[in-house]
Design a protein around this nucleic acid. Sequence first.
DNA 1: CGTCGAGTTGATTCCTATCAATTGAGGTGG
DNA 2: CCACCTCAATTGATAGGAATCAACTCGACG
Lengths: 250, 250
Amino acid sequence: MLEKTSSPSDLSVKALRASCSTCSMHQLCLPMGLGENDMDRLDQIIGRRRKVPRDGHLYRMNDPFTNLYAIRLGHFKTCQINAGGEQQITGFQMTGELLGMDAISTDRHHCDAIALEDSEVCEIPFQRLEELFGTMPTLLRHFHRMMSQEITREQSVMLLLGNMRAEQRFAAFLVNLASRYNTRGYSSTSFQLRMSREDIGNYLGLTIESISRLLSKFKKQELLKVNNRHIELLDMPTLKAMAAGNEVCG
Amino acid sequence: MLEKTSSPSDLSVKALRASCSTCSMHQLCLPMGLGENDMDRLDQIIGRRRKVPRDGHLYRMNDPFTNLYAIRLGHFKTCQINAGGEQQITGFQMTGELLGMDAISTDRHHCDAIALEDSEVCEIPFQRLEELFGTMPTLLRHFHRMMSQEITREQSVMLLLGNMRAEQRFAAFLVNLASRYNTRGYSSTSFQLRMSREDIGNYLGLTIESISRLLSKFKKQELLKVNNRHIELLDMPTLKAMAAGNEVCG
DNA sequence: CGTCGAGTTGATTCCTATCAATTGAGGTGG
DNA sequence: CCACCTCAATTGATAGGAATCAACTCGACG
């Protein structure tokens, strides 16, 4: 599951090291807003890049917490399993997003993180990160913003799960993906779903059949085109209105 | 809504100031694990205590973010309102818990915080708190734990809303309250609900009628006694099993 | 060509929402 | 002290949305 790292040459160690300054995600990710000097210091502590194959676990529930992970490439899902064995996907993460923050409170991971496609992350040893916080207030401040953002993200999922109808949930899901791809410089109207219908359903508190029906319905309403996992959003205004909970005459 | 603070004598200023070291919540709240010296430094920056009457707003959505608040006395609810006007209660908070962490990411509050009864909080100016972080790693670490804990709390609500049946949700809600009262040294089996049936329903993604029916059902099953807002839990093992999603023959 | 898994579509069931009526508690004022 | 009002909560009847159960399609792959 892990890539081989046995006795690498200096060169290959350097190659394996992540470098924030040359990473295309550095204006989204942890080093956001850092000067060159600070970014170098952050680079110093960041461990190797780690490749995670499709369906591979980045970490599992109850694993001891040592690293945060910044996604460099690919997509992940995080999911919780309760005592009854039911799983709930708590989020889909993409490049520039941070994984593992939920583990800080107990020093153990509270969920599984699984790659949705072949992916790559930067290991960030949390203890060393904490050492930097003392002298890098900008870094600390952005770290707090990222944790806070995770809190607000989860709150909006609570709103979605607690108050919205299936149709509204799914519209909100699509609009959210679109906006995140847009932020990353990708098309916000044409993209590949990295997750299965089952994953989407689980995340949205619906069944796979419901997701399938919603896709068909939206297709018939000419809100989108679907081809397997490729999605083209044709009517963002209506989708946004649906996601916001405004009445839409169909 | 605010208590009078006009030209107070030195003595009354001191009285208005919160003091972590004498607060009964200091082993749960932000100063957890601090030495006497550090706790004094934290005390220095903590602003006045603020009283919030029942149904009063501690802050509102979109208010600019300046303070975190530690609950000294009473109970709060936090709720989001979406564009469609629907509200979702995202949590009920009690003594020793921190309010406002979701505002760090955008410098504006993302939800309303409303007192469920006459309550009292300590104002913690976030900018000054950040200044302390540089030299108080213990404080910083515990702050991170508290944020992380909020993330995991919300994840378990996502599990609840996404996967659980009404009965299971309500059992989980009761068990969660019981455990938090237990942590605070109160009875875990006999307590007052501070929130209305409507609030409970909103939080759990159910209607007020469903909550009422569940209470009646649980009462009939002799899992609990209810008298208005007073609850007595009679069969914790069964309630816990229900919350965990284990089959319970009723 | 057959198998396997993912996804779609249809028929039916069931849980919870909705609608409606009633009860009860707390507060006010005559 | 009691009548009255109001709001919260309970209980019942019905409706509706999504789950469940089931059959089928499609594409990938050996």
